[in-house]
Design a protein around this nucleic acid. Sequence first.
DNA 1: AAGTTTGTTCAGCT
DNA 2: CAGCTGAACAAACT
Length: 320
Amino acid sequence: MPELPEVEVVRAGLAPALNGASVVAAEVRDARALKRHVPLSDEAGVGGVGVSLDAAAAAVRAADFERRIVGVSFAAPARRGKFLWVPIADGPPVALLAHLGMSGQMLLRAHDAPDDAHVRVRLWIEHPEHGELRLDFSDQRLFGSLAIDALVATDDGFAAGRGAAEALIPGQAAHIARDPLDPAFDDALFIARLRARPVAVKRQLLDQGLISGVGNIYADEALWRARIHPETAGTRIGAAKATELLAHVREVFAKALAEGGTSFDAQYVNVNGQAGYFAHSLNAYGRTGEACPRCGTPIRRMAFMNRGSHFCPKCQRKRT
DNA sequence: AAGTTTGTTCAGCT
DNA sequence: CAGCTGAACAAACT
């Protein structure tokens, strides 16, 4: 379940190997991993983003992807929220776009390394300094995907995200808000929008159009730290409390990043296949029935937005 | 073997 | 029409 810290670990890990590398060969093993890829041949709209594919359409999509990726050179990988992309250095402004979904992994392997499980797309790359490598996109559940996507100008004119050299972002990620680790994130705007709506604060934290990069785990953790009940309406949160919440989101992100991200089982790993350690530092998420580290009250789990919400019923009272 | 997991999108409602 | 919300959907593992 990669959220911002996990995707950032992946971006940083890919950067030295991909920046300046060229793609020697490509193999799409499962076209379902190209859900977001729109072949040039049907940009007219026959098979848009996310439509399910029959065998013929899948073959067209795979062939189009392979044809367009082989021979390109990569620039530095960039990230906004949970979206990751690698600009293609030559030709018209396009990028290799990746969303890891729930179980996506980007693995850098030696050419002759054994297969990892669930490899859906493989690129053979060559870097002037680091030599030959494989970039394997592995995804057990196929909620993630790769695509070649056109870059468009950012609406505020600032660099598109972490690692981005230019104010260009993949079209499919253009509607995503900046994330709170982005220097161009507008704190005052976020706080004003959060407080303007009667919508539950947790739903707003998960709204990638308002603030990006926050998923279920870090939403629960930030709310626990800020002592806010997940169902509290945005309109009931004072300006000071909202400022505090944003600071907690940043803090929990920074801490998770420093520990290499959150891993459960083998679902999230860095580019070398290694797990992160932040799962040991979680205070609320997944700790149903265990004592709240602050007051000892058992952590409660409630169904919310079709998923689990974990919170301390004593520390995190509804309203304020 | 039915339930669980999550990010994203959208139908359908007020 | 705009804004909101519940739910559908994508798979695979227990």
